[in-house]
Computed example of a mutant assay.
Amino acid sequence: MSPPLVLGCLWVLAAAVTAMLPMRRQMVPGLTLLIVAPVLLVWIGLVHGWLWLAIGLFAFLSMFRNPLLYFLRRALGRPARLPKELEK
């Protein structure tokens, strides 16, 4: 098995563990996964082709849709609400 696929599997396991954490404890590992994912997806795409890149990108966007929408709204200057668990 190729190194990008092994790291991709480890990324998925780390994402599953992160999802099981309480909402307040998900921020740091979640942001780390969010930053690492594009690099890993490009690496998988370079080694295995654009089809696997597209499949991985679809899965990534599905898993991180809410954080990505939050950052998009902030970037466009639109109101973006945090989840109730994170509001103080």
Results as ranks from 00 to 15, higher is better:
78 R>K: 15
10 L>W: 12
80 A>W: 13
61 L>F: 09
59 A>E: 01
33 L>W: 01
76 L>K: 11
28 V>I: 06
39 V>F: 15
24 R>I: 09
20 M>K: 03
12 V>N: 00
79 P>T: 13
26 Q>N: 03
25 R>Q: 09
5 L>K: 02
48 H>P: 04
56 G>S: 12
29 P>W: 00
85 E>Y: 10
9 C>Q: 13
32 T>E: 02
52 W>I: 04
70 Y>N: 05
34 L>P: 02
17 V>D: 00
57 L>C: 10
85 E>A: 15
28 V>S: 02
1 M>V: 11
16 A>D: 00
66 N>Q: 14
36 V>W: 14
8 G>R: 01
67 P>R: 13
30 G>R: 01
15 A>F: 01
56 G>R: 02
35 I>K: 13
20 M>H: 03
65 R>K: 11
70 Y>G: 07
10 L>S: 06
50 W>C: 04
46 L>K: 14
33 L>Y: 01
62 S>V: 01
61 L>K: 04
84 K>A: 14
84 K>D: 11
50 W>M: 09
25 R>A: 15
57 L>N: 06
74 R>S: 12
30 G>N: 03
66 N>G: 04
79 P>I: 12
9 C>M: 09
26 Q>D: 03
39 V>T: 14
51 L>Q: 12
41 L>P: 07
29 P>N: 00
48 H>I: 05
24 R>Y: 07
27 M>F: 14
81 R>P: 06
22 P>G: 06
38 P>E: 11
69 L>C: 07
79 P>E: 15
77 G>C: 10
12 V>A: 02
6 V>N: 08
60 F>Q: 05
19 A>W: 04
27 M>N: 05
68 L>D: 06
44 I>W: 02
